[in-house]
Design a binder for these strands. Sequence first.
DNA 1: AAATTTATTTAGACAAATCTAAATAAATTT
DNA 2: AAATTTATTTAGATTTGTCTAAATAAATTT
Lengths: 219, 219
Amino acid sequence: MKHTHAEENYLKAIYMLSEKQESLVSTTAMADFLHTSAASITDMIQKLHNKGLVIYRKYQGVTLTDRGKESAIKILRKYLLWEVFLVDKLKFGWSEIHEIAEQLEHIDCDTLIDRLDHFLGNPYCSPHGIVIPNADGKIIDKPRWLLTDLSEGASGIVSAIKDDSVAFLQYLGKRNIYLGAKITVIEKIQFDGSTDITIDNQYKINISRKITDNILITL
Amino acid sequence: MKHTHAEENYLKAIYMLSEKQESLVSTTAMADFLHTSAASITDMIQKLHNKGLVIYRKYQGVTLTDRGKESAIKILRKYLLWEVFLVDKLKFGWSEIHEIAEQLEHIDCDTLIDRLDHFLGNPYCSPHGIVIPNADGKIIDKPRWLLTDLSEGASGIVSAIKDDSVAFLQYLGKRNIYLGAKITVIEKIQFDGSTDITIDNQYKINISRKITDNILITL
DNA sequence: AAATTTATTTAGACAAATCTAAATAAATTT
DNA sequence: AAATTTATTTAGATTTGTCTAAATAAATTT
């Protein structure tokens, strides 16, 4: 099923808002999220209802049908993969990528996004730590830990970073720490809380507690 | 100056059509190019005229103003760089990239395209051999030769390929020949017209006349 | 429970981009 | 040069997505 840009924005918005809360998504919540008027929301929601993409009850709110959810997840997948591309390959900072990825998510080509996924090394989650649905639309929730909480000898993959500041990003870049890098904990130094690690079994460095507190690891 | 998607498509179309011929671009030529009706073309052209992007004379045809040309070249630059991305990084074949790049060319972000350019290694031209305008909109025309016409000892950069067939692309991939690769002619064999070359001063191989006839080289 | 405030929907309008059918201009043929 | 064909434009309609202002429903306050 194909959708217009606007439809895609609405579907993704409903999906994201309904992830945060149990109840139906309200008109105002959507108006707020999409920076548009409540009247426009009602209009569009009714169209989506007629197309069988959402279930809508007047004055109550809206929720996705299975078909709607499937589409929403596809769009989210595209959005998140483009975010990874922008940060990982084009070295954009966290703050700049949202707008661009919101444009890129509408590019319509089935093979494109799977190739992009492969090109990026099948990342587990976006720079902001949101899990990327796989090609089948499944969201597999791996457990994640702070690098701080890994024990000596353990290793895992850098899957997200909690701090978005340019300074932190530059630090990570300089130390060859990137999304998808394999980190092994060599030794945890009690004295100052710092940690000796290796990156990709290559570089051995020591990083402070402040750094390990901001790196999320999956296995 | 910002444009709608449709406006961008028209500007690029006018630019490309007027590159091929001297005279004004006709309504039918554009209708043909954009797969739309002549009536729609007239409508849009009049709007572009009112915005000062084209000069239009009823029944005569249309040409770009300086402002229109500037915009058109920016769009073309984006289109071509995305084409390089798709072929070089995502390993798409020639035939598949046009549609996708036509979508990607409308992504609006100044820094994005310059970073992409850098990421791709500032390619000189698209896979189809069309010169990519630089960030200032300048089109610098370097001389190009067929690999066949290089003399022994000469070297240059693979800048385009004339044959788009999958078979040829696969051949090149297998031989480590890619856009931007450095090729040095070691020896030209009179007997069968084949050529001994090195790629990136590394691999030494022999390629037939049919191959050298389809590779364009810049210095 | 009535009054008021807030949320939501409806009605009507608008801009963008397209279309078809009819009208008109330009080019070509006879 | 008149007739015909082709190219182009105009007129009017349609779809999509948005808006504002007015109407109505739901929630909250008094």
